[in-house]
Amino acid sequence: MNRKLFRWIVLFLLMAISHALPAQQVVTFENPETKQRYENLLENLRCLVCQNQALSDSNAGLANDLRVEVERMLRQGESDQQVVDFLVDRYGDFVLYDPPLKTSTYLLWFAPLLLLILFSVSMITYFRHQKTIMTEPPLDCKQRARAADLLNDVDQ
């Protein structure tokens, strides 16, 4: 029984640490600034195979190949923009976590603003309507007398 329990504990411990293992091999650059750029780039580029992972997190074969490419380009002294362009030329805007502003992405970028405007307009009209109901003029003498008559009728 203890043996079984022990196995379970080992299994869970292994599961716990497996998450902490880095997907990528450790890459060293002579210049710490380049290393920082390398890491930033990988965090902001999407893995094409497992689309919810960044290039830095993915174990997919392609992600690994692309990391090697990014590393090679940085070593050759290419700029961040050149690296991003290289990937966008081949894989499209999809590799970017931060989509560029262009015709096909207008809806994506402006939908929140559009919804905010729509919501504000409907709220304003709603409250205006409420206000007109509340500010209806009170009854005058004649109307009040008539109302009293009607109520008396009901009572009898």
Partner: peptide
């Protein structure tokens, strides 16, 4: 062999 040309083609699997 190393998938380098495939990257140029935008292959991802």
């Amino acid at each position: 062999q190393d998938g380098r040309v495939a990257i140029d083609f935008g292959v991802y699997g």
